[in-house]
Computed example of a mutant assay.
Amino acid sequence: MAGNQKAKAKAEQAKGKAKEALGRAVGNERMEAEGRTQGAKGDARQTKEKAKDVFKH
């Protein structure tokens, strides 16, 4: 299950980066901001999963 959550975190980070880049390319500030937010959520999820791994072992 932890591997699944880690994969979700990576996917969310990638989606966020893509959305941010697309927003920047087309000049849509809102899309760019949404991408940064989504990337930050992915970062937070990844950090949470890493912390769970530390306490697990």
Rank of each mutant, 00 (worst) to 15 (best):
M1N: 12
Q5A: 11
K6N: 14
K6S: 07
K6D: 09
A7S: 03
A7I: 08
A7Y: 01
K8V: 10
K10Y: 07
A11L: 05
A11V: 13
E12K: 13
E12P: 13
Q13K: 10
A14L: 10
A14V: 02
A14I: 04
K15F: 00
K15S: 11
G16A: 02
G16V: 04
K17Y: 00
A18W: 02
K19I: 10
K19S: 05
E20T: 06
A21L: 02
A21S: 13
L22G: 15
L22V: 09
G23V: 05
R24H: 05
R24D: 10
A25L: 14
V26T: 05
V26A: 07
G27W: 03
G27N: 15
G27A: 04
G27C: 12
E29T: 12
E29Q: 07
R30W: 08
M31R: 04
E32Q: 11
A33V: 13
A33G: 13
A33Q: 02
E34L: 03
E34S: 14
G35D: 07
G35A: 06
R36W: 11
G39K: 14
A40R: 01
K41Y: 06
K41H: 08
D43I: 00
A44L: 12
A44T: 14
Q46R: 06
Q46Y: 12
Q46I: 00
Q46D: 10
T47H: 15
K48D: 01
A51K: 05
